[in-house]
Design a binder for these strands. Structure first.
Lengths: 293, 293
DNA sequence: GATATCTATACGCTGAGCGTATGCATGACG
DNA sequence: CGTCATGCATACGCTCAGCGTATAGATATC
């Protein structure tokens, strides 16, 4: 009943039988004996515990479940072919994983400048829930993160530093200033949202550390702040990702900047590694003047 | 180099090594010896002709292509699991293939009435290029077609008859009538579009059979007719699929109606077969009053 | 430099999977 | 209605792919 007893051989056999119309012709197409085809399909049916093909003496027709399995079998085989092509083709491609909160507003400029500078290699920006998982699963070649991954398998390099912004209700007295300091926020409640990685209370000196409440998601976070129930602090790219009427963002002058890092598998530089590193660094250095709008 | 030398065993092995971090741990996870894991991965690399993993003495990291192959391998294995689930779950589902020209405007009413009458079984309407190919490939369980498939593997049943409509330029004198007859079209050029299955000249008695021109696609067809260069004839459902300013459709009173059929694999009734047959029949019998808008 | 850890290779063995041969069911045909 | 042709299933023996055990080689750690 476990997957383990399924085999590509069996799937190829099923497909061939349906395509050729008979076990005998499938055997010829597969370069096998008719007996082998018969046994192989029987083993597949036994493994799945379902009859897949109805054999009449003159022709063979798939059962209802056989038809569903057939479609899925084709999908599997197509994926295998794609895997082989992926492995053997020299086509250049780089897939960069990112969480919303990290790459933020630079996604557009990044893609535009990349295709301008490196028309030969495709750039894929793939959204991942966890950057380390994205690398570990092979979903991306490089990954944009904030904190160094706590995983010895990966290396990271800083590509930029960003200011911290304080999220305030639009009618907050502080909203009239161009920037604030940590001390200005004494006595406020700090809302944090771990999923998007907003700043933690460790930013503050211990004596003026604010009270903390957690929110369930970004929308919660934005709502409570817009309602004036407290403040939030977040990195610049993240803030730009979540504009909202009723909320203004102001730089926190004395909060230490937060890093943006590129992460990759240790000791295995992707061909485009250096180019990505340089472009990202430049992107965060030149900030929003880089080529937006 | 051919797909044939790839094996699910090898893919499971690759995934386990990356997930576990070492060959040794992967062996434990797979219930194999370390030697077996080493050989299996080596055989995969040999089959693909590419190095997938870089072995250092302390840890193992995927190469650039290894990472891509890894992602694809996960996809293959996920599809296999899906295949097993598909085969063993008793979840009721019926997938109906259709070409635009056949099911036409009834798609919405069909889905609405189905879910109302049979909430237990999912209905999937899948667009197929060729209804017979859709059945043969397992992409759908039942298929809506016009002509009986010229394939002994499939059976068809008529679910309805539809009027033929004549497509005319809006400023055509005939457009002022509520309906036309074949004889009214004498001397016109008949445009046909084989891809959408518009009516052929056999509709006419031999003595008044019109001149014929073929178009490349539906858009062509609509354009030349709107321009007044000739006329077209098509089934009612098809016509409703392609409304266009500048074109009016009028019933052809003496043209024999065209059938709509349901097709399926011979001798293997899908559980929902009868229900689909009845609903479709009813849909085409009651026409547009069925439940639209 | 000794040690621990991990991968690669050698060797012998077992069983999955193959082909050949044959039995059985069924539609075709006279 | 009997014979034949066609096509799937099963039996039997064989071969080699893939396994485990054992061991050598490589490298970080102490």
């Amino acid at each position: 009943m476990h997957d383990a007893d399924i085999d590509l051989r069996q799937l190829r056999c099923l497909v061939a039988i349906v395509d050729e119309g008979t076990f005998t012709d499938a055997a010829i197409a597969l370069g096998l004996s008719q007996a082998a085809v018969s046994r192989t399909l029987a083993s597949l049916e036994r493994a799945l515990g379902v009859r897949l093909l109805r054999r009449t003496s003159r022709e063979v027709t798939p059962t209802a479940t056989g038809l569903r399995v057939l479609a899925q079998a084709r999908r599997v085989l197509a994926d295998v072919s794609e895997l082989v092509r992926e492995a053997t083709s020299g086509h250049e491609r780089v897939r960069i994983g990112y969480a919303w909160s990290a790459l933020g507003r630079h996604t557009v400029a990044f893609q535009r400048r990349w295709t301008a500078a490196h028309p030969g290699t495709d750039l894929h920006l793939v959204r991942v829930n966890s950057p380390s998982a994205g690398l570990a699963e092979g979903a991306c070649d490089l990954s944009v993160v904030r904190r160094p991954l706590g995983d010895r398998r990966f290396d990271t390099a800083i590509v930029g530093l960003e200011r911290r912004l304080c999220a305030l209700a639009a009618d907050d007295p502080l909203a009239r200033r161009r920037s604030v300091r940590l001390a200005d926020l004494t006595g406020r409640t700090l809302f944090i949202d771990r999923r998007t990685g907003t700043a933690t209370p460790e930013l503050w000196p211990p004596d003026i550390r604010p009270a903390v409440e957690e929110t369930h998601d970004v929308d919660d976070w934005l709502t409570v702040i817009a309602a004036g129930r407290g403040i939030g602090v977040t990195a610049e790219s993240t803030a730009n990702q979540y504009p909202r009427p009723g909320i203004v963002y102001r730089p926190v002058r004395d909060a230490e900047p937060v890093a943006v890092r590129l992460a990759w598998w240790r000791g295995d530089p992707h061909p485009a590694h250096q180019a990505v590193l340089e472009l990202l660094t430049d992107l965060y250095r030149t900030g929003r003047a880089a080529g937006e709008g």
